[in-house]
Every structure is written in structure tokens, then in C-alpha cells.
Design a protein around this nucleic acid. Structure first.
Lengths: 199, 199
DNA sequence: TGACAAATCGAACGACCGTTCTATTCTAAC
DNA sequence: GTTAGAATAGAACGGTCGTTCGATTTGTCA
């Protein structure tokens, strides 16, 4: 790795942390440069524009998310255990300072067309696809009923995660973790083969 | 209403619309003054500080939310019908340009202590209390089982709303409305007296 | 109608923003 | 060890931000 790539990566690493707290557009080049011990223009040269920096930050966030949540979940058995691992992994991920990068960024960018938004949409869809895939495997493994809708379950799981985020980080409700767990269990129960009720 | 109060109210009305789209801190006094046909300092004088303006905007949002969602729901029969009305009312509310003010503002302010945050926390808690209250009434009316936890249901409903917001406004998923409805029905089904399963 | 207060304006402030340029320092390959 | 090119620095730009202050218009009530 050349010197340039090295500092660029170091910048992105810190930029990602910072953006998780202050938001993608709240991230400022001057502030970031100061934290990195670089000049504003020196740092700027690595990206060429603020928007390109934002895109790179979103990509860095995806990279870290894959590494810290998705990959470890793949080490768990296929089906429900893996789905649980994904849920647990996200809970861990959401504990870092500033919470979940994607939750903040998606509400921030929902009305701002452009490359950063497109990149984030792609990342979020990948995550939802991963959840749906885990549900689909749960069906084929015989853990869930055949008539369970994977995309529907992924939707509801993600809603849980968002609710958890708001209750924990904004309302600071100490009951949040239990609430989320309980809702998740209800979702699993309703999806299992043992359950007699149709969905 | 004096002249001052009148323009102040007009400013807040527009400021609320604007803040729903660009966020609470994204709201700028210069931009707002231009839209209102006022000078920057003239508009500024109505509030004294940006932070005071932000607080006033949050209050205005609460005012409108009560008027457009909560009050109409009270005209529906106690219990499950009213809970449905609250849900439907929120869905309508979330359709306005920029989506739901509270969803955007709460992720924006979760790491920014101060009066605007405190005001918003209060407003959101009021809304959640209203949901929980509707659930509680549903129990006493015999629509829901006695062992249903009102706060838990309120948590899950709010999670649904958040999921809907992200899927609809950020991902632009056309299936969103159905997904949210279906999840809501599952929640109601699991809560009803007819259901044999314990929660 | 006159007088006092309320409302609004206009200019200026310092701070920070992203971006551009030119000059300098450093790194890496020959 | 020299040299070309990459990496960084520094100063300056136009712009917007929230805020202050003194002057001026406008509304309100005796």
C-alpha cells in the first residue's frame, strides 16, 4: 500500500466514525483535516470533492459492516441461528458512538439525490437482501413455514432495528433491549413451523 | 392576534414545512427570511436565537400533529378502532413532503443535547403514551388480551412506522404500504382475545 | 392626531464552509 | 544519488452561517 492509499484509508476510518456522530453532510473537511493533523487542501486532494468524500465514507461504512456483522454471522449454522446472529450482530453494531451509521445517513439523505444517496441505497438493499436470504434458508431448513414471506420478515426486522435505535439513542429508554428482543421473538414464533396460525 | 404574533405564526408554519425537508439544523434563517419576504434580522428578532427558533419549530410540529392525527382519532370508538385510526392518521401524516418531521428530527438530534432535543423527546413520548393508552383501552374494552403489554405494542407500532418511513422515502419501495399494513395486522392478531398463544 | 412601542430593515461582524491555485516537501523507482 | 511524480502545505476566493446594532418604518392606543 502506497503512502497515499495509506493516509487515505486512515482518513476514511476516522471520517466514518465522525460521520456516524455528526452525519454525512455534517462532516466537514476542515474539522477532519485538523483531527488527522493534515492541512485542509492536503486532505481535500485525496478525494477531489466533498461529494466524493461522502461516497467514500458510505463505502467505508459498508466495508466495516460486512466485516463486523455479515461475515461473523456466516459462521453460524444456516437458518434461524444465522438469522439470530445477524440480529445480534446489528445490535452490537448499533452500540458504537453515534449509533448505526446507516440509520442516520438514510434519514439524512432521503431527500438529497446524488451519488452518496445511491451508494447508500445499494448498501441498505444488500443488508435487507441478506436478511431475506437468511429467512429463505430458514424455510428451506425447515425452521420456518413455507408460506412465510422473506421480504416481509426482513421489513419487520429492520423496523425493529429502527425502533431500537430511536428508543435507545434518542429516548434513552432502559427497557429498549428487552423490547427489541421480545418483538424479535414474536416474529420468530409467528414464523415457525410449530405455529398453527396462518400469516 | 397582534401583528407580531401573526407573522411569527406565519414564519413557524413555513419553517415547519421547510424543516421537515431539510432538517432542524438544516433550516437557515437567511433562507427562511427570503421565503417569507422578510429581512434576515427582521425575522431573527422574532426568536432571538437559532436555538429558540428550533424549539418553536418543534412545538409547531407537535401542535400540528395533535391537530391532524391525535384529535381526529379521538372521534373513533374506543379500543382497537381508535388504535387503527392512530395508525392510519400517522400514515397520512408521513405522506407530506419530507415525510414525518419527528422521524427526521429525532435521528438528527439524538447526539445534540439542548432545548430542541428536550422538546422533541417530550413530544415523541407523548405520542408513544397516546399509542400505549389506546392499547390499554383496547384491553379494557375486551378487544385485546389482558396480558398484552401496552408499552411493548407501542414500541412495535412505532418501529413499523420507522420502517415504513425508510422503505417508502429512502428506498422508494412500492410494496411499503402493504408491508406496513400486514405487519400491523399481525400485531393486532397476536394481541386479540381470540388468539390462543401466549405472548 | 400624536406619541410611544413594536416591528422591520440594512449593513457589518467573525467564523466556517468547499474549492482553487501555486509552492514546497517527501517518496519511490531508476 | 538523482529525478520525476506523488503528497502535502499555505494562502486566498466567494459564499453562507448566526448574530449584533443603530436607524427607520409601522402598528397601536390614549
Amino acid at each position: 500500500m502506497s503512502k497515499g492509499e495509506e493516509t487515505r484509508q486512515a482518513i476514511l476510518s476516522r471520517a466514518f466514525e465522525l460521520a456516524t456522530v455528526v452525519g454525512v453532510s455534517g462532516l466537514s473537511i476542515g474539522r477532519l483535516a485538523e483531527e488527522m493533523g493534515l492541512s485542509k487542501s492536503g486532505l481535500f486532494a485525496h478525494f477531489g470533492s466533498k461529494e466524493a468524500l461522502e461516497v467514500a465514507v458510505v463505502e467505508e461504512a459498508s466495508r466495516q459492516f460486512v466485516q463486523e456483522v455479515m461475515v461473523p454471522a456466516l459462521r453460524h449454522p444456516r437458518g434461524e441461528p444465522r438469522l439470530r446472529a445477524l440480529f445480534d450482530g446489528w445490535m452490537q453494531w448499533g452500540q458504537r458512538p453515534g449509533g448505526c451509521f446507516f440509520v442516520g445517513a438514510s434519514t439524512e439523505l432521503d431527500d438529497r439525490p446524488g451519488a452518496p444517496r445511491d451508494t447508500l441505497v445499494r448498501a441498505l438493499k444488500d443488508w435487507l437482501d441478506e436478511l431475506a436470504k437468511a429467512v429463505r434458508i430458514s424455510i428451506s431448513e425447515g425452521h420456518f413455514r413455507a408460506d412465510v414471506n422473506p421480504e416481509q420478515v426482513a421489513f419487520e426486522i429492520y423496523g425493529l432495528m429502527l425502533g431500537m435505535h430511536t428508543f435507545h439513542r434518542f429516548l434513552r429508554e432502559p427497557t429498549t433491549l428487552d423490547r427489541a428482543r421480545q418483538a424479535f421473538e414474536r416474529l420468530l414464533t409467528d414464523s415457525r413451523v410449530a405455529s398453527p396460525r396462518s400469516r
